[in-house]
Amino acid sequence: MSSSERRPVVIVDDVHVRYKVYATGRRVGRRVGRFERGIKEVHALRGVSFTVYEGENIGVIGHNGSGKSTLLRTVAGFTPASEGAVYATSQPSLLGVGSALLPRLDGHKNINLGALALGMTPAEAEASYDYIAEFSGLKEHLSYPMRTYSSGMSARLKFSIAMAKAHQILLVDEALAVGDKAFRDRSEKRIRELREEAGTTFLVSHSMQSILDTCDRAIWIDHGELRLDGDPQTVVDAYEASTADL
């Protein structure tokens, strides 16, 4: 097979995401009879399309609230597209910096639960426990409830759980921005390994340096639209030029 026949791994086809939020700080219930007014529609993604081929590492950039995280959640299939569709060769795994899995439980249990939720059998979960605990570097904190963790710590634990499994398509949402230097180095190394194992990665980051270091294609999302798609240096330059105007 000639190398020019590239196999698509992810197809994002004209994806729109709309959702309703209860707008303003005002309590919705107070305006009896007119409470619908408090509900606003957010159009988070406005027709984004692109195709990702095998082995590509995509960096996703854009200002806060531009729809980057929504894009990743939609690619993973967690947030449904209001229009359009996302196709992929296998279920992508999303690494985010969201809240703890179950905040009232301690780290040990969250590790076990997270591993089972990833689809491991109890035996596999048991076997990967040590790896996860080791990788997170949180051993002495694992017997405390996760609600006592700092956001960096809980992101580290979630990241470590997800790292225990091989993923063909890995979506990383600013995970590299959390944790201390040692943990960041460890994660970057692990992501490089995962990439060699087969994968395609998406990295959402505000660090232009880590986009340039780890990606071979960049996508700039601006107000829910795809502004630019191409070589990382070009896209990063254009993005930085636009923010310099502000």
């Binding site: 196999r7 698509p8 791994v9 992810v10 197809i11 195709t51 939609t74 690619v75 993973a76 299939g77 967690f78 947030t79 449904p80 597209a81 569709a85 996302v86 196709y87 992929a88 060769t89 279920q91 992508p92």
Partner: peptide, 12 residues
């Protein structure tokens, strides 16, 4: 194209 390359719709 998705069908041709064996991709399935996510979240389906």
């Amino acid at each position: 194209m998705a069908k041709k390359y064996g991709l399935s719709r996510m979240g389906a």
